[in-house]
Design a protein around this nucleic acid. Structure first.
Length: 812
RNA sequence: GGGCUCGUAGUCUAGUGGCUAUGACGUCUGCUUGACGUGCAGGAGGUCACCGGUUCGAAUCCGGUCGGGCCCACCA
């Protein structure tokens, strides 16, 4: 391109649209199953299609993309699929709202169909945000966690684990959300601090004596089945074996001893209800207590609550407290704050109900899961502790059935005659038992009369299969074997216990192997004050609004500023810095090419370099080495920092200024001096742009095409190869000379600044003292003279034994 | 209560034993330097949370204290 055609300003909006389209049209990120090079396969997190991309997504997806782009430039064969997560409650709610329907009033098949159709409509717009962010996925390797492909894999997984004996169905106390009316798993619990009242309630003994029990949940009184105190508690020892009468409800319950009772807590004596908490379940099992259910699946009082029947839990609590007061059975009330478990989707306090559910048995495998955890490389390493910590705290088998309408159906029927479980045949997957029939008669009694399972699978039972959902798209291709285990699982730290752990579980159960080699855990984007963003606080920043105002590259540049795993405050000023860097890159490249003229990197490859240029190339070469190492270690922020510093300080502030004399005045300095500068400029700008390409894909592509493509010939900078370290370019001596030159320039600049005079003003005399030979100094003398506009430069050698290394005196 | 993690100029941040503690933003003073004023040059600004220890030497290692964050547990 001729100089006059190069625009003075970089138009980022135009550039973004142009390259986004070009990358797609040219298949720059297309996976090639036949390509050479080591495989680098990414288990891309499928974002929930029912939401909008938020700044946290922009943050963490940018970070994973840096690493992918680096590996692509390194020549690896990139398998980078994209999926959307549209399974589960979030989608169900969205479709109900959008289409004004109630899923429960529709046939499951019809509702699922409506979901799939609606999702197909809204998905392209949603994915467009990810494309705009510059994520270099091959978007044609695509799955949605609810489509037929995924349903088939998910159901197949269920069938396999069932046949292995890892899945069982059981009537058991289960965590239940009365709002969503479904069983949930331990991982879906969330803590919430809630104000509550500690009620001291009077129970009567046979002999008329009173027993004071403190509880926050008096509505569970009808479900009270026993009373416990610590075996050594002197206050209650004599009561063991006796009965107490439950106030209002009047039934008698035994008073027993339990190690779990804490004499220090409350009144030291507690009531056991079926069920209020974990301990109740354990007491229920240990003492073989009766089952009294006070709460129904929709969060109301059951029949045993008598006159409180059908009341919502909280109303019943109030009414019972009122009645206790009236009967003089409420001794006192204390206001307390305590944390309760709520359902993470809806914030409703969970209940423990006895229901029939499907479970994956895995508590016996804790050590194996931890072993697999140690087999993988965690970045940063300490994130593995969260994983171990979670496994240590696991107390429930994985409940995988949900009493919902939308999701992957259980491929299961029950024989009406004998109750035997019939699982679907693999050939009929995906299957909906509500509409389809088993292929064979009942294995036990040969009956053909079946009852379908209505429940759907937990959404995590499917999303824990993302390595399979993606790789099985290439099941019939020889490359299939090379993709698994995948190279990388990138994700944020909040779902280590959900997605990451569950994926390890499924992959272990199916293959006894780890799903990935590396794990990269991103942090969160925080508000400018380091606080978590949330809609209720009103401090949410939308990436769509950001890239209206700033280039996407600037947003990614910000995301590249934090170490992997660290949270990062979002500050608009960081975007401004990004914009400045983009402008500076554009201008520096423009400057370089204004002066490159007929320079040809191939034809002029054997140029005899000037000392100052050798210094630059040597430094650049060292930087390539350390940037590569940083990237290989997932430390993209180090690469960014180092490159940025080199570019801004070494290259722009010093090199470009020093080289001007040679570029503008070839008559004075000679043809070789000019060619040498051209060579250094070409290499330095190209290398810098390549090092920043993973972080800022748009501006670097623009610069590559505008200036370098005619020489470099690759169709994209992102396929142009990562710069390689060349030992032969290391030149320690040249770097020392470079340092002396820069030191001198700095001193002259300071002297001029102190005198408030322009940098282009000449100075009379500069005396440089350094520990080099006169001969070596001659190699940089003209460069120093050119940039400082010194009329006279005098050199004095410092003796090797002297303490100081260099000195500079200026005579203005 | 347990695990992990962090505490560095007004703000964000680099730095895991060794020159005068890094960079950016902000601030102050200059400079219309033939790429860029979205720029250039220069300056001011820090008891590296606190206490103690190891060491010739500590922001960095060890112990403790205080404070923030995340996860888990408890929820009588």
């Amino acid at each position: 391109m001729a100089n006059e055609e190069i625009p003075k300003k970089y138009d980022w909006k135009e550039s973004e649209n142009k390259w986004k389209e070009y990358w797609e049209k040219e298949g720059v990120y297309k996976f090639d199953p036949k390509a050479n090079g080591d495989m680098y396969a990414i288990d891309t997190p499928p974002p929930t299609v029912s939401g909008k991309m938020h700044i946290g997504h922009a943050f963490s997806y940018s970070q994973q993309d840096f690493m992918v782009r680096f590996n692509r430039m390194k020549g690896k064969n990139i398998f980078y699929p994209f999926g959307t997560d549209d399974n589960g409650l979030a989608t169900e709610r969205l479709i109900e709202k959008m289409k004004k329907v109630k899923s429960t009033r529709m046939e499951r098949k019809d509702f699922v169909k409506l979901c799939l159709e609606t999702l197909d409509e809204i998905r392209p717009q949603y994915i467009a945000d990810w494309k705009h962010l510059g994520i270099s996925c091959d978007f044609s390797i695509f799955y949605t966690t609810i489509n037929e492909h995924c349903q088939r894999i998910s159901q197949k997984s269920f069938i396999e684990l069932y046949k292995m004996g890892r899945e069982y169905q059981k009537e058991a106390p289960t965590m239940w959300c009365p709002e969503c009316r479904t069983a949930i798993a331990q991982v879906e619990l969330q803590d919430q601090e809630t104000p509550s009242t500690f009620n001291h309630i009077i129970f009567k003994l046979d002999d008329g004596k009173e027993l004071i029990i403190a509880t926050t949940r008096p509505e569970l009184l009808p479900a009270c089945v026993s009373i416990f105190a610590h075996p050594d508690d002197k206050r209650y020892k004599k009561l063991f074996g006796k009965n107490a009468r439950v106030p209002i409800f009047g039934h008698e319950v035994p008073i027993m001893a339990s190690q779990k009772a804490d004499p220090e807590k409350g009144t030291g004596i507690l009531m056991c209800c079926t069920f209020g908490d974990q301990d109740d379940i354990e007491h229920y099992k240990e003492f073989n207590l009766p089952l009294k259910i006070a709460i129904t699946k929709d969060g109301r009082m059951s029949e045993i609550a008598g006159k409180y029947k059908d009341m919502p839990i909280k109303d019943a609590r109030k009414a019972i407290i009122e009645d206790l007061k009236n009967e003089g059975l409420l001794l006192k009330q204390e206001q307390i704050k305590h944390t309760v478990n709520v359902h993470e989707r809806c914030g409703t306090e969970i209940e423990i109900l006895e229901t029939k559910q499907w479970f994956i048995k895995y508590l016996d495998l804790k050590d194996e899961f931890k072993r697999i955890g140690r087999e993988m490389n965690w970045h940063p390493p300490h994130m593995r502790h969260r994983y171990d910590n979670w496994i240590d705290g696991l107390r429930w088998d994985w409940c995988i059935s949900r009493q919902r309408h939308f999701g992957v159906p259980f491929p299961v029927w029950y024989c009406k005659k004998c109750g035997e479980v019939a699982v679907a045949d693999e050939s009929q997957l995906p299957v909906d038992p509500l509409a389809d029939k088993p292929k064979k008669a009942c294995a036990k009694c040969k009956s053909n009369d079946f009852e379908p399972e209505k429940d759907v699978l937990d959404t995590w039972a499917t999303s824990s299969l993302t390595p399979q959902l993606a790789t099985e798209l290439f099941k019939n291709n020889p490359v299939y074997k090379k993709i698994y285990p995948m190279s990388l699982r990138p994700q944020a730290h909040d779902i280590i216990t959900f997605w990451l752990f569950n994926t390890v579980v499924k992959n272990y159960l199916h293959y006894k192997s780890r799903p990935w080699n590396d794990i990269a855990i991103s942090g969160w984007a925080l508000d400018p004050h380091g606080k978590k963003m949330s809609k209720s606080k009103g401090n949410v920043v939308e990436p769509q609004a950001v890239w209206q105002k700033y280039p996407v590259d600037a947003l990614r540049f910000w995301a590249g500023g934090s170490k992997l795993g660290d949270d990062m405050p979002y500050q608009e000023k960081d975007l401004v810095t990004g914009v400045k860097t983009i402008t500076k890159l554009w201008n520096a490249a423009r400057f370089a090419f204004m002066h490159l003229g007929d320079y040809d990197p191939v034809k002029h490859a054997d140029i005899d370099l000037e000392a100052y240029d050798k210094a630059l190339i040597s430094k650049l070469n060292r930087m390539v080495k350390s940037c590569t190492e940083s990237f290989e270690n997932y430390e993209y922020s180090k690469t960014k920092m180092e490159t940025e510093k080199f570019f801004w300080q070494d290259l722009c502030d010093y090199y470009l200024e020093v080289s001007k004399d040679r570029l503008y005045n070839p008559d004075k300095r000679g043809e070789n001096a000019r060619r040498s500068a051209q060579h250094a400029l070409y290499r330095a700008i190209l290398t810098t742009v390549k090092l920043l390409a993973p972080i800022m894909p748009y501006i670097t592509e623009e610069i590559y095409h505008t200036f370098f493509k005619k020489h470099e010939k690759k169709k994209s900078i992102h396929l142009s190869g990562w710069p390689s370290y060349d030992e032969n370019l290391a030149d320690e001596n040249a770097e020392i000379l470079g340092k002396i030159a820069d030191f001198t320039v700095e001193h002259v600049r300071r002297a001029k600044s102190e005198q408030n005079i322009s940098l282009k003003e000449p100075v009379k005399r500069v005396v440089v003292e350094a520990k080099i030979s006169e001969e070596d100094f001659e190699k940089i003398k003209e460069d120093i003279k050119g940039v400082t506009h010194a009329e006279e430069i005098v050199f004095e050698a410092i003796k090797p034994e002297s303490k100081k290394d260099m000195e500079c005196t200026i005579d203005i």
